[in-house]
């Protein structure tokens, strides 16, 4: 087979066989309750009437797991904005950011709005979330989801975040960076070409640099991707840490995960990167994710 495959990660993924098995298996279907429109218990009752299998998720009481044959995006309750269909692994980053009520939050690459609407729920529809995306075609889905879920604390904007000229503005910044999305591979092991990964890595570094610049001193920045490539994850964080713009803090989550990598091949990232987390598809039968929590230096 030409090009790189998942085998490039054989030495860094602790249970590589489980990873290969997981990409050939259907992922769990999970949804997230929207508290802006309905009480949790009401939704739970409706879900049990509508779907054959509904399970609560222990680590996060906003989330429910459905049977693998269900199609919750094609349901009347979905159209009413009572829930958002979202992978379990994608629900972690907003919880790590943990914005307080009435705070000023930037979701830098927000479309289609899964994490934005989750942040809105965590903030109980208070304060302000700037939900930004560069890609105008993707704004339609972002606006649609924000409206459907009744997120009144969201301002939708369209900027190339790299070109923003503001500084020291936000209490919290979430950067769900564009990435090679290797964590969402299904029934294939071939990766994107290296030149695409290199191009994305440069973009990710520029976006994270800007995220730190526009965050207030002492504020929290969460960087996440849905890919395995260390160059797009630990490599990006190490680049920022080397510039002494922010410090890394431990990500504390109550779900199975691995620590961030200290090195990959010839690339040394340093022991601090162990404070980041890697979630592999076999951990939750969900997508892959990398999450790092940074604090801007005063």
């Amino acid at each position: 087979m030409e090009g790189e495959t998942l085998l490039r990660y054989k030495d860094i993924i602790p249970d590589f066989d489980a990873l290969i098995a997981s990409i050939n298996r259907p992922r769990d279907i999970t949804i997230r309750w929207n508290p802006h429109k309905i009480e949790r218990n009401q939704l739970f009752a409706m879900l049990r009437e509508t779907f054959n299998e509904v399970h609560e998720i222990g680590w996060y009481n906003h989330a429910f797991k459905l049977g693998q044959n269900e199609r919750p995006g094609k349901n009347f309750l979905h159209a009413l904005g009572y829930y958002y269909v979202q992978e379990e692994s994608a629900m972690v980053a907003p919880i790590v950011l943990a914005p307080s009520k009435n705070s000023f939050v930037l979701d830098m690459c927000a479309a289609p709005g899964g994490k934005t609407t989750q942040l809105s729920a965590l903030m109980e529809n208070s304060g302000t979330i700037i939900a930004n995306d560069k890609a105008i075609p993707r704004l339609k889905s972002l606006v649609s989801n924000v409206s459907r879920l009744g997120c009144i604390n969201v301002v939708v904007t369209w900027n190339d975040a790299r070109n923003l000229s503001i500084k020291d503005c936000f209490d919290y910044v979430l950067l769900d960076a564009p990435c090679t999305a290797e964590g969402n591979l299904f029934k294939k092991i071939k990766l994107m070409p290296k030149f695409m990964r290199d191009s994305l890595t440069n973009l990710q570094k520029a976006l994270l640099h800007k995220a730190i610049e526009i965050a207030k001193p002492g504020s929290t920045i969460v960087y996440c991707t849905c890919t395995f490539a260390p160059e797009e994850n630990e490599g990006v964080i190490a680049n920022i840490l080397a510039k002494n713009l922010a410090k890394i803090e431990p990500v504390r989550i109550k779900i199975p995960h691995e620590k961030g990598l200290e090195y990959f091949g010839k690339n040394e990232y340093g022991g601090e990167l162990k404070k980041a987390v890697r979630i592999y598809p076999y951990h939750l039968n969900s997508g892959g994710a990398f999450i790092a929590k940074l604090r801007k230096r005063d």
Partner: peptide
């Protein structure tokens, strides 16, 4: 500096 598409509902 942000290009606003819409705010709130």
């Amino acid at each position: 500096g942000f290009n606003m598409q819409c705010k709130g509902l």
